[in-house]
Simulated scan of single mutants.
Amino acid sequence: MQTTYFWAGVAVILVLLDLWIINSVWRSSKISRTKLGWTALVILLPFVGAVIWSIAGPRGVTKGPSSPEHSKG
């Protein structure tokens, strides 16, 4: 029974990681075709896609804070 909870926990973590990756991909400055490719890879091969993305995925986020007040330290 405990192994079932373990694998359920792993699945939840993997889904959250994939959602974070997809969000990061769509916020990048790459073209839409590249974003669709990364999204498809991560959805079709969740673990392998996450590993490949961590090595070769797009870097940088184009959208910054929503207001100047938000970015103050």
Score class of each variant (00 low, 15 high):
residue 32 S to Y: 10
residue 39 T to E: 05
residue 20 W to L: 15
residue 22 I to S: 00
residue 55 I to T: 04
residue 18 D to T: 10
residue 27 R to P: 05
residue 33 R to V: 06
residue 57 G to I: 04
residue 46 P to I: 01
residue 45 L to R: 05
residue 56 A to D: 13
residue 30 K to A: 06
residue 17 L to Y: 06
residue 35 K to M: 10
residue 37 G to Y: 07
residue 71 S to V: 10
residue 15 V to L: 15
residue 30 K to Q: 11
residue 9 G to P: 02
residue 63 K to G: 06
residue 25 V to L: 04
residue 16 L to W: 12
residue 5 Y to D: 10
residue 61 V to I: 12
residue 41 L to Q: 00
residue 11 A to D: 12
residue 73 G to W: 13
residue 37 G to V: 06
residue 11 A to G: 14
residue 42 V to L: 09
residue 1 M to W: 04
residue 8 A to F: 10
residue 62 T to H: 08
residue 70 H to I: 10
residue 40 A to N: 09
residue 59 R to P: 05
residue 58 P to F: 05
residue 43 I to Y: 03
residue 34 T to M: 02
residue 62 T to N: 11
residue 52 I to Q: 06
residue 70 H to E: 15
residue 72 K to W: 10
residue 69 E to V: 11
residue 15 V to A: 11
residue 12 V to C: 06
residue 37 G to S: 08
residue 14 L to V: 14
residue 13 I to Q: 10
residue 12 V to N: 04
residue 36 L to M: 14
residue 14 L to W: 09
residue 24 S to T: 12
residue 45 L to A: 08
residue 51 V to Y: 06
residue 10 V to P: 05
residue 59 R to Q: 10
residue 40 A to T: 13
residue 11 A to Q: 14
residue 25 V to P: 05
residue 33 R to C: 02
residue 42 V to F: 01
residue 7 W to Y: 15
residue 7 W to G: 04
residue 14 L to T: 14
residue 8 A to S: 13
residue 28 S to I: 07
residue 17 L to R: 03
residue 52 I to N: 02
residue 37 G to F: 09
residue 55 I to D: 08
residue 56 A to F: 15
residue 68 P to M: 00
residue 51 V to A: 09
residue 56 A to L: 14
residue 62 T to M: 00
residue 47 F to W: 11
residue 13 I to H: 09
residue 22 I to T: 02
residue 30 K to G: 03
residue 18 D to H: 00
residue 71 S to M: 10
residue 49 G to A: 01
